[in-house]
Design a protein around this nucleic acid. Sequence first.
DNA 1: GTATGTGAAGTAATTCACAGCT
DNA 2: AGCTGTGAATTACTTCACATAC
Lengths: 228, 228
Amino acid sequence: MSDKRKIAEAAIVRLSVYNRALGEIEKEGLEIISSDELGDRIGYHATQIRKDLSCFGEFGEVGKGYFVRDLRDAISRILGVDRKWNVALAGAGHLGSALLAYPGFRQRGFNIVAVFDNDLAKIGKKWEGIVIQDTSELAKTVKEQDIRIGIIAVSPQVSQEIVDTLTSCGVRAILNFAPASITVGEGVELRNVDLATELECLSYFLTNEAEVRTEVLRKIKNNNGEGG
Amino acid sequence: MSDKRKIAEAAIVRLSVYNRALGEIEKEGLEIISSDELGDRIGYHATQIRKDLSCFGEFGEVGKGYFVRDLRDAISRILGVDRKWNVALAGAGHLGSALLAYPGFRQRGFNIVAVFDNDLAKIGKKWEGIVIQDTSELAKTVKEQDIRIGIIAVSPQVSQEIVDTLTSCGVRAILNFAPASITVGEGVELRNVDLATELECLSYFLTNEAEVRTEVLRKIKNNNGEGG
DNA sequence: GTATGTGAAGTAATTCACAGCT
DNA sequence: AGCTGTGAATTACTTCACATAC
Protein backbone atom coordinates (compact mmCIF):
# COMPACT_ATOMS: atom_id res chain seq x y z
CA MET A 1 0.00 0.00 0.00
CA SER A 2 2.95 2.30 -0.55
CA ASP A 3 3.20 3.33 3.08
CA LYS A 4 6.91 4.00 3.21
CA ARG A 5 6.88 5.19 6.78
CA LYS A 6 6.43 1.68 8.09
CA ILE A 7 9.51 0.30 6.36
CA ALA A 8 12.14 -1.08 8.67
CA GLU A 9 15.79 -0.51 7.98
CA ALA A 10 16.27 -4.27 7.79
CA ALA A 11 13.73 -4.35 4.99
CA ILE A 12 15.77 -1.87 2.96
CA VAL A 13 18.85 -4.03 3.31
CA ARG A 14 16.77 -6.96 2.09
CA LEU A 15 15.50 -4.99 -0.92
CA SER A 16 19.11 -4.42 -1.89
CA VAL A 17 19.79 -8.14 -1.61
CA TYR A 18 16.72 -8.96 -3.69
CA ASN A 19 17.96 -6.58 -6.34
CA ARG A 20 21.42 -8.09 -6.40
CA ALA A 21 19.96 -11.57 -6.73
CA LEU A 22 17.58 -10.42 -9.46
CA GLY A 23 20.56 -9.11 -11.38
CA GLU A 24 22.14 -12.57 -11.31
CA ILE A 25 18.85 -14.21 -12.24
CA GLU A 26 18.44 -11.85 -15.16
CA LYS A 27 21.92 -12.77 -16.40
CA GLU A 28 20.95 -16.42 -16.27
CA GLY A 29 18.17 -15.60 -18.70
CA LEU A 30 15.26 -16.31 -16.38
CA GLU A 31 12.34 -13.99 -17.12
CA ILE A 32 10.01 -14.89 -14.30
CA ILE A 33 10.60 -15.98 -10.71
CA SER A 34 8.37 -16.78 -7.75
CA SER A 35 8.94 -15.43 -4.27
CA ASP A 36 9.59 -19.03 -3.22
CA GLU A 37 12.41 -19.53 -5.70
CA LEU A 38 13.92 -16.14 -4.95
CA GLY A 39 13.70 -16.82 -1.24
CA ASP A 40 15.47 -20.15 -1.66
CA ARG A 41 18.34 -18.52 -3.51
CA ILE A 42 19.03 -15.84 -0.93
CA GLY A 43 17.90 -17.56 2.23
CA TYR A 44 14.75 -15.64 3.08
CA HIS A 45 11.17 -16.78 3.50
CA ALA A 46 8.93 -16.14 0.53
CA THR A 47 6.48 -14.29 2.77
CA GLN A 48 9.20 -11.95 3.90
CA ILE A 49 9.87 -10.97 0.32
CA ARG A 50 6.21 -10.48 -0.51
CA LYS A 51 5.60 -8.47 2.66
CA ASP A 52 8.60 -6.24 1.99
CA LEU A 53 7.43 -5.54 -1.53
CA SER A 54 3.81 -5.05 -0.54
CA CYS A 55 4.74 -1.86 1.27
CA PHE A 56 5.55 -0.24 -2.05
CA GLY A 57 2.97 -1.66 -4.39
CA GLU A 58 2.00 -4.78 -6.26
CA PHE A 59 4.71 -6.05 -8.57
CA GLY A 60 3.80 -9.69 -9.14
CA GLU A 61 1.48 -11.63 -11.40
CA VAL A 62 -0.81 -13.77 -9.26
CA GLY A 63 -0.37 -17.43 -10.13
CA LYS A 64 2.80 -16.69 -12.08
CA GLY A 65 5.41 -14.87 -10.05
CA TYR A 66 7.45 -11.74 -10.75
CA PHE A 67 8.85 -10.58 -14.07
CA VAL A 68 12.53 -10.37 -13.19
CA ARG A 69 13.27 -7.26 -15.24
CA ASP A 70 10.20 -5.40 -13.99
CA LEU A 71 10.81 -6.23 -10.34
CA ARG A 72 14.42 -5.16 -10.64
CA ASP A 73 13.37 -1.86 -12.13
CA ALA A 74 10.76 -1.37 -9.42
CA ILE A 75 13.18 -2.09 -6.56
CA SER A 76 15.80 0.14 -8.19
CA ARG A 77 13.30 2.97 -8.17
CA ILE A 78 12.37 2.29 -4.55
CA LEU A 79 16.01 2.32 -3.48
CA GLY A 80 16.73 5.36 -5.60
CA VAL A 81 19.41 3.53 -7.57
CA ASP A 82 17.75 4.17 -10.93
CA ARG A 83 20.17 7.08 -11.16
CA LYS A 84 23.83 7.88 -10.40
CA TRP A 85 25.06 9.25 -7.09
CA ASN A 86 28.22 11.26 -6.61
CA VAL A 87 30.18 10.26 -3.56
CA ALA A 88 33.04 11.84 -1.63
CA LEU A 89 35.66 9.70 0.03
CA ALA A 90 37.42 10.99 3.12
CA GLY A 91 40.67 9.22 3.86
CA ALA A 92 43.27 8.04 1.36
CA GLY A 93 44.79 5.25 3.42
CA HIS A 94 44.70 1.53 2.65
CA LEU A 95 40.97 1.25 3.14
CA GLY A 96 40.20 4.43 1.22
CA SER A 97 42.33 3.20 -1.64
CA ALA A 98 40.44 -0.10 -1.74
CA LEU A 99 37.06 1.63 -1.65
CA LEU A 100 38.11 3.95 -4.46
CA ALA A 101 39.01 0.95 -6.61
CA TYR A 102 35.99 -1.15 -5.56
CA PRO A 103 34.15 -2.03 -8.77
CA GLY A 104 30.84 -2.73 -7.01
CA PHE A 105 30.26 0.93 -6.28
CA ARG A 106 30.37 2.10 -9.89
CA GLN A 107 28.49 -0.99 -11.07
CA ARG A 108 25.65 -0.12 -8.75
CA GLY A 109 25.53 3.57 -9.52
CA PHE A 110 27.85 5.13 -6.97
CA ASN A 111 30.69 7.21 -8.36
CA ILE A 112 33.43 8.37 -6.05
CA VAL A 113 34.24 11.72 -7.64
CA ALA A 114 36.40 13.26 -4.93
CA VAL A 115 38.96 12.08 -2.39
CA PHE A 116 40.13 14.06 0.64
CA ASP A 117 43.01 13.59 3.02
CA ASN A 118 45.02 15.72 5.43
CA ASP A 119 48.36 14.10 4.59
CA LEU A 120 50.42 16.63 2.64
CA ALA A 121 52.38 13.78 1.04
CA LYS A 122 49.18 12.51 -0.59
CA ILE A 123 47.43 15.75 -1.51
CA GLY A 124 47.84 16.49 -5.20
CA LYS A 125 48.50 12.90 -6.17
CA LYS A 126 46.19 11.18 -8.62
CA TRP A 127 44.46 7.90 -7.71
CA GLU A 128 42.17 6.15 -10.16
CA GLY A 129 42.05 9.39 -12.10
CA ILE A 130 41.09 11.52 -9.11
CA VAL A 131 43.35 14.14 -7.53
CA ILE A 132 43.49 13.86 -3.73
CA GLN A 133 42.39 17.16 -2.21
CA ASP A 134 42.91 18.95 1.04
CA THR A 135 39.90 19.01 3.34
CA SER A 136 39.80 22.80 3.02
CA GLU A 137 38.49 22.32 -0.51
CA LEU A 138 35.64 20.11 0.64
CA ALA A 139 32.86 22.70 0.67
CA LYS A 140 33.68 23.92 -2.81
CA THR A 141 34.00 20.43 -4.29
CA VAL A 142 30.84 19.09 -2.68
CA LYS A 143 28.90 21.93 -4.25
CA GLU A 144 30.56 21.80 -7.66
CA GLN A 145 30.31 18.03 -8.01
CA ASP A 146 26.83 17.73 -6.48
CA ILE A 147 28.08 15.24 -3.88
CA ARG A 148 25.30 13.75 -1.77
CA ILE A 149 27.03 10.88 0.02
CA GLY A 150 30.21 10.77 2.10
CA ILE A 151 32.35 7.77 2.95
CA ILE A 152 34.52 8.02 6.04
CA ALA A 153 37.75 6.03 5.89
CA VAL A 154 39.87 8.20 8.15
CA SER A 155 41.21 7.38 11.61
CA PRO A 156 38.66 7.27 14.45
CA GLN A 157 40.41 10.28 16.01
CA VAL A 158 39.42 12.66 13.22
CA SER A 159 36.25 10.91 12.03
CA GLN A 160 33.76 13.10 13.92
CA GLU A 161 35.49 16.22 12.65
CA ILE A 162 35.30 15.18 8.99
CA VAL A 163 31.69 14.08 9.42
CA ASP A 164 30.87 17.51 10.82
CA THR A 165 32.60 19.17 7.87
CA LEU A 166 30.70 17.04 5.38
CA THR A 167 27.31 17.62 6.99
CA SER A 168 27.95 21.34 7.29
CA CYS A 169 28.45 21.29 3.51
CA GLY A 170 25.02 19.74 3.08
CA VAL A 171 25.94 16.07 2.79
CA ARG A 172 23.07 14.18 4.39
CA ALA A 173 24.21 10.57 4.03
CA ILE A 174 27.35 9.15 5.60
CA LEU A 175 28.88 5.70 5.46
CA ASN A 176 31.35 5.47 8.32
CA PHE A 177 34.13 2.89 8.45
CA ALA A 178 35.96 4.52 11.35
CA PRO A 179 35.60 2.51 14.56
CA ALA A 180 34.13 5.37 16.57
CA SER A 181 30.72 6.46 17.82
CA ILE A 182 29.81 9.30 15.51
CA THR A 183 26.88 11.61 16.06
CA VAL A 184 25.06 13.51 13.33
CA GLY A 185 22.31 16.09 13.41
CA GLU A 186 18.67 15.58 12.59
CA GLY A 187 18.05 14.77 8.96
CA VAL A 188 21.43 13.16 8.36
CA GLU A 189 21.56 9.40 7.79
CA LEU A 190 24.57 7.62 9.21
CA ARG A 191 25.51 4.00 8.63
CA ASN A 192 28.38 2.44 10.52
CA VAL A 193 30.51 -0.46 9.39
CA ASP A 194 33.02 -1.54 12.01
CA LEU A 195 35.12 -4.27 10.43
CA ALA A 196 36.45 -5.52 13.75
CA THR A 197 32.92 -5.68 15.18
CA GLU A 198 32.04 -8.08 12.39
CA LEU A 199 34.86 -10.36 13.46
CA GLU A 200 33.91 -9.97 17.12
CA CYS A 201 30.45 -11.31 16.32
CA LEU A 202 32.10 -14.34 14.77
CA SER A 203 34.32 -14.67 17.82
CA TYR A 204 31.22 -14.67 20.01
CA PHE A 205 29.72 -17.41 17.90
CA LEU A 206 32.86 -19.54 18.02
CA THR A 207 33.23 -19.05 21.76
CA ASN A 208 29.58 -19.65 22.48
CA GLU A 209 29.47 -22.63 20.15
CA ALA A 210 32.32 -24.29 22.02
CA GLU A 211 30.54 -23.77 25.34
CA VAL A 212 27.28 -25.12 24.00
CA ARG A 213 29.16 -28.12 22.63
CA THR A 214 30.77 -28.77 26.01
CA GLU A 215 27.43 -28.41 27.73
CA VAL A 216 25.85 -30.84 25.31
CA LEU A 217 28.67 -33.32 25.93
CA ARG A 218 28.28 -32.88 29.68
CA LYS A 219 24.55 -33.47 29.43
CA ILE A 220 25.11 -36.54 27.33
CA LYS A 221 27.52 -37.88 29.98
CA ASN A 222 25.15 -37.07 32.85
CA ASN A 223 22.12 -38.57 31.18
CA ASN A 224 24.13 -41.50 30.04
CA GLY A 225 21.39 -44.14 30.08
CA GLU A 226 18.83 -41.71 28.77
CA GLY A 227 16.15 -43.77 27.00
CA GLY A 228 12.94 -41.89 28.01
CA MET B 1 20.46 -14.78 33.78
CA SER B 2 23.31 -16.06 31.70
CA ASP B 3 21.05 -17.74 29.21
CA LYS B 4 23.10 -17.07 26.14
CA ARG B 5 20.73 -18.86 23.84
CA LYS B 6 18.28 -15.97 24.06
CA ILE B 7 20.78 -13.37 22.92
CA ALA B 8 19.88 -11.59 19.71
CA GLU B 9 22.49 -10.99 17.08
CA ALA B 10 21.85 -7.25 17.34
CA ALA B 11 22.77 -7.46 21.02
CA ILE B 12 26.16 -8.96 20.16
CA VAL B 13 26.88 -6.09 17.80
CA ARG B 14 25.97 -3.70 20.61
CA LEU B 15 28.27 -5.48 23.06
CA SER B 16 31.10 -4.89 20.63
CA VAL B 17 30.20 -1.21 20.48
CA TYR B 18 30.04 -0.99 24.27
CA ASN B 19 33.49 -2.51 24.42
CA ARG B 20 34.93 -0.11 21.88
CA ALA B 21 33.46 2.83 23.79
CA LEU B 22 34.73 1.48 27.10
CA GLY B 23 38.21 1.36 25.59
CA GLU B 24 38.00 5.05 24.82
CA ILE B 25 36.58 5.83 28.24
CA GLU B 26 39.39 3.91 29.90
CA LYS B 27 41.94 5.92 27.92
CA GLU B 28 40.31 9.10 29.19
CA GLY B 29 41.06 7.90 32.69
CA LEU B 30 37.47 7.42 33.81
CA GLU B 31 37.19 4.54 36.25
CA ILE B 32 33.43 4.30 36.63
CA ILE B 33 30.56 4.99 34.28
CA SER B 34 26.78 4.69 34.50
CA SER B 35 24.65 3.07 31.84
CA ASP B 36 23.14 6.52 31.25
CA GLU B 37 26.49 8.12 30.48
CA LEU B 38 27.60 5.22 28.33
CA GLY B 39 24.31 5.27 26.46
CA ASP B 40 24.65 8.99 25.79
CA ARG B 41 28.10 8.50 24.29
CA ILE B 42 27.12 5.79 21.86
CA GLY B 43 23.50 6.65 21.19
CA TYR B 44 21.70 3.82 22.98
CA HIS B 45 19.18 3.86 25.81
CA ALA B 46 20.59 3.03 29.22
CA THR B 47 18.00 0.28 29.63
CA GLN B 48 19.17 -1.34 26.43
CA ILE B 49 22.68 -1.57 27.79
CA ARG B 50 21.56 -2.95 31.15
CA LYS B 51 19.27 -5.48 29.52
CA ASP B 52 21.97 -6.66 27.15
CA LEU B 53 24.39 -7.13 30.02
CA SER B 54 21.85 -8.77 32.30
CA CYS B 55 21.75 -11.80 30.02
CA PHE B 56 25.31 -12.61 31.04
CA GLY B 57 25.44 -11.66 34.68
CA GLU B 58 25.59 -8.67 37.00
CA PHE B 59 28.50 -6.38 36.32
CA GLY B 60 27.49 -3.09 37.94
CA GLU B 61 27.51 -1.59 41.39
CA VAL B 62 24.02 -0.49 42.33
CA GLY B 63 23.93 3.25 43.01
CA LYS B 64 27.37 3.70 41.46
CA GLY B 65 27.63 2.39 37.93
CA TYR B 66 30.11 0.10 36.21
CA PHE B 67 33.83 -0.14 36.81
CA VAL B 68 35.11 0.58 33.31
CA ARG B 69 38.01 -1.87 33.42
CA ASP B 70 35.92 -4.67 34.92
CA LEU B 71 33.07 -4.24 32.45
CA ARG B 72 35.49 -4.20 29.56
CA ASP B 73 37.06 -7.42 30.75
CA ALA B 74 33.67 -9.00 31.23
CA ILE B 75 32.42 -8.06 27.75
CA SER B 76 35.71 -9.21 26.24
CA ARG B 77 35.20 -12.60 27.82
CA ILE B 78 31.59 -12.74 26.60
CA LEU B 79 32.64 -11.89 23.05
CA GLY B 80 35.56 -14.28 23.24
CA VAL B 81 38.05 -11.52 22.48
CA ASP B 82 40.06 -12.09 25.65
CA ARG B 83 42.33 -14.17 23.38
CA LYS B 84 43.84 -14.00 19.89
CA TRP B 85 42.20 -15.46 16.80
CA ASN B 86 44.04 -16.57 13.69
CA VAL B 87 42.32 -15.52 10.50
CA ALA B 88 42.70 -16.53 6.85
CA LEU B 89 42.13 -14.00 4.12
CA ALA B 90 40.92 -15.20 0.73
CA GLY B 91 41.54 -12.72 -2.05
CA ALA B 92 44.59 -10.51 -2.54
CA GLY B 93 42.94 -7.75 -4.53
CA HIS B 94 42.49 -4.13 -3.48
CA LEU B 95 40.05 -4.97 -0.71
CA GLY B 96 42.08 -7.92 0.55
CA SER B 97 45.16 -5.75 0.65
CA ALA B 98 43.34 -3.12 2.72
CA LEU B 99 41.98 -5.72 5.13
CA LEU B 100 45.43 -7.21 5.56
CA ALA B 101 46.79 -3.80 6.51
CA TYR B 102 43.79 -2.80 8.65
CA PRO B 103 45.18 -1.98 12.11
CA GLY B 104 41.84 -2.51 13.86
CA PHE B 105 41.96 -6.26 13.37
CA ARG B 106 45.25 -6.80 15.18
CA GLN B 107 44.35 -4.21 17.83
CA ARG B 108 41.24 -6.16 18.66
CA GLY B 109 42.81 -9.59 18.66
CA PHE B 110 42.42 -10.80 15.09
CA ASN B 111 45.61 -11.78 13.29
CA ILE B 112 45.50 -12.46 9.59
CA VAL B 113 48.13 -15.19 9.36
CA ALA B 114 47.51 -16.47 5.83
CA VAL B 115 46.47 -15.00 2.48
CA PHE B 116 45.19 -16.99 -0.47
CA ASP B 117 44.64 -16.09 -4.10
CA ASN B 118 44.34 -17.91 -7.42
CA ASP B 119 46.31 -15.30 -9.36
CA LEU B 120 49.66 -16.85 -10.31
CA ALA B 121 51.19 -13.39 -10.55
CA LYS B 122 50.48 -12.83 -6.86
CA ILE B 123 51.21 -16.26 -5.39
CA GLY B 124 54.60 -16.31 -3.70
CA LYS B 125 54.73 -12.56 -3.17
CA LYS B 126 55.01 -11.21 0.36
CA TRP B 127 52.47 -8.72 1.71
CA GLU B 128 52.74 -7.33 5.22
CA GLY B 129 55.16 -10.16 5.96
CA ILE B 130 52.84 -12.89 4.71
CA VAL B 131 53.48 -14.97 1.59
CA ILE B 132 50.42 -15.23 -0.65
CA GLN B 133 49.53 -18.88 -1.12
CA ASP B 134 47.69 -20.92 -3.67
CA THR B 135 44.27 -22.16 -2.57
CA SER B 136 45.53 -25.73 -2.86
CA GLU B 137 47.56 -25.11 0.29
CA LEU B 138 44.54 -23.98 2.26
CA ALA B 139 43.76 -27.20 4.10
CA LYS B 140 47.35 -27.64 5.26
CA THR B 141 47.74 -24.02 6.36
CA VAL B 142 44.41 -23.86 8.19
CA LYS B 143 45.45 -26.85 10.23
CA GLU B 144 49.04 -25.77 10.85
CA GLN B 145 48.14 -22.21 11.82
CA ASP B 146 45.00 -23.11 13.78
CA ILE B 147 42.88 -20.79 11.66
CA ARG B 148 39.30 -20.44 12.91
CA ILE B 149 37.95 -17.51 10.90
CA GLY B 150 37.93 -16.83 7.16
CA ILE B 151 37.52 -13.51 5.40
CA ILE B 152 36.23 -13.60 1.82
CA ALA B 153 37.49 -10.80 -0.40
CA VAL B 154 37.37 -12.61 -3.73
CA SER B 155 35.07 -11.96 -6.67
CA PRO B 156 31.42 -12.99 -6.22
CA GLN B 157 31.90 -15.59 -8.96
CA VAL B 158 34.31 -17.71 -6.92
CA SER B 159 33.11 -16.75 -3.43
CA GLN B 160 30.90 -19.80 -2.82
CA GLU B 161 33.71 -22.09 -3.96
CA ILE B 162 36.26 -20.63 -1.55
CA VAL B 163 33.72 -20.65 1.29
CA ASP B 164 33.11 -24.34 0.63
CA THR B 165 36.85 -24.99 0.69
CA LEU B 166 37.26 -23.13 3.96
CA THR B 167 34.36 -24.85 5.70
CA SER B 168 35.50 -28.27 4.46
CA CYS B 169 38.79 -27.52 6.24
CA GLY B 170 36.91 -26.92 9.48
CA VAL B 171 36.61 -23.14 9.44
CA ARG B 172 33.30 -22.38 11.11
CA ALA B 173 33.16 -18.59 10.93
CA ILE B 174 33.15 -16.60 7.70
CA LEU B 175 33.10 -12.88 7.05
CA ASN B 176 32.03 -12.39 3.45
CA PHE B 177 32.67 -9.18 1.52
CA ALA B 178 31.74 -10.65 -1.86
CA PRO B 179 28.40 -9.32 -3.12
CA ALA B 180 26.82 -12.74 -3.50
CA SER B 181 24.33 -14.90 -1.62
CA ILE B 182 26.51 -17.52 0.03
CA THR B 183 25.17 -20.61 1.74
CA VAL B 184 26.93 -22.50 4.49
CA GLY B 185 26.14 -25.74 6.29
CA GLU B 186 24.81 -26.20 9.80
CA GLY B 187 27.18 -25.01 12.49
CA VAL B 188 28.95 -22.44 10.32
CA GLU B 189 28.42 -18.77 11.08
CA LEU B 190 28.36 -16.44 8.10
CA ARG B 191 28.32 -12.66 8.20
CA ASN B 192 27.87 -10.66 5.03
CA VAL B 193 29.09 -7.14 4.39
CA ASP B 194 27.99 -5.80 1.02
CA LEU B 195 29.60 -2.41 0.63
CA ALA B 196 27.27 -1.33 -2.16
CA THR B 197 24.23 -2.37 -0.12
CA GLU B 198 25.36 0.07 2.54
CA LEU B 199 25.33 2.87 -0.01
CA GLU B 200 21.98 1.69 -1.40
CA CYS B 201 20.46 2.13 2.04
CA LEU B 202 21.72 5.69 2.06
CA SER B 203 20.33 6.17 -1.44
CA TYR B 204 16.93 5.00 -0.17
CA PHE B 205 17.11 7.51 2.63
CA LEU B 206 18.07 10.39 0.34
CA THR B 207 15.37 9.47 -2.16
CA ASN B 208 12.62 9.19 0.42
CA GLU B 209 13.95 11.79 2.83
CA ALA B 210 11.41 14.44 1.89
CA GLU B 211 8.48 12.13 2.51
CA VAL B 212 9.84 10.81 5.77
CA ARG B 213 10.90 14.17 7.15
CA THR B 214 7.37 15.12 8.15
CA GLU B 215 6.94 11.93 10.13
CA VAL B 216 10.29 12.33 11.86
CA LEU B 217 9.46 15.83 12.96
CA ARG B 218 6.17 14.65 14.40
CA LYS B 219 7.91 11.91 16.34
CA ILE B 220 10.49 14.32 17.70
CA LYS B 221 7.71 16.57 18.93
CA ASN B 222 6.02 13.65 20.65
CA ASN B 223 9.19 12.49 22.39
CA ASN B 224 10.17 15.98 23.32
CA GLY B 225 9.66 15.80 27.11
CA GLU B 226 13.02 14.13 27.39
CA GLY B 227 15.63 16.32 29.02
CA GLY B 228 14.13 17.56 32.28
C1' DG C 1 19.78 10.54 46.44
C1' DT C 2 21.59 7.47 42.78
C1' DA C 3 21.87 3.72 39.63
C1' DT C 4 21.40 -1.29 38.76
C1' DG C 5 18.66 -5.36 37.39
C1' DT C 6 14.38 -7.14 35.79
C1' DG C 7 9.33 -8.38 35.27
C1' DA C 8 5.77 -6.18 32.74
C1' DA C 9 4.20 -3.40 29.06
C1' DG C 10 4.53 -1.78 24.75
C1' DT C 11 6.46 -1.95 19.81
C1' DA C 12 8.13 -3.94 16.01
C1' DA C 13 9.27 -7.67 12.88
C1' DT C 14 8.29 -12.08 11.08
C1' DT C 15 5.59 -15.93 9.81
C1' DC C 16 1.09 -18.09 9.16
C1' DA C 17 -3.06 -18.79 6.78
C1' DC C 18 -5.96 -18.00 3.36
C1' DA C 19 -8.82 -15.13 0.16
C1' DG C 20 -8.63 -14.11 -4.47
C1' DC C 21 -6.81 -14.08 -9.08
C1' DT C 22 -4.77 -16.54 -13.35
C1' DA D 1 -3.14 -26.26 -9.76
C1' DG D 2 -0.05 -22.24 -8.61
C1' DC D 3 1.20 -17.92 -6.60
C1' DT D 4 0.47 -13.22 -4.94
C1' DG D 5 -1.01 -9.94 -1.43
C1' DT D 6 -2.40 -9.23 3.20
C1' DG D 7 -4.95 -9.39 7.81
C1' DA D 8 -4.14 -12.13 11.84
C1' DA D 9 -1.15 -14.54 14.87
C1' DT D 10 3.10 -15.17 16.52
C1' DT D 11 7.52 -14.18 17.85
C1' DA D 12 11.18 -11.09 19.03
C1' DC D 13 12.89 -6.73 20.61
C1' DT D 14 12.85 -2.49 23.19
C1' DT D 15 11.41 0.58 26.71
C1' DC D 16 9.04 1.45 31.06
C1' DA D 17 8.53 1.24 35.86
C1' DC D 18 9.98 0.05 40.06
C1' DA D 19 11.94 -2.97 43.68
C1' DT D 20 16.34 -3.31 45.46
C1' DA D 21 20.85 -2.03 47.02
C1' DC D 22 24.51 1.28 48.12
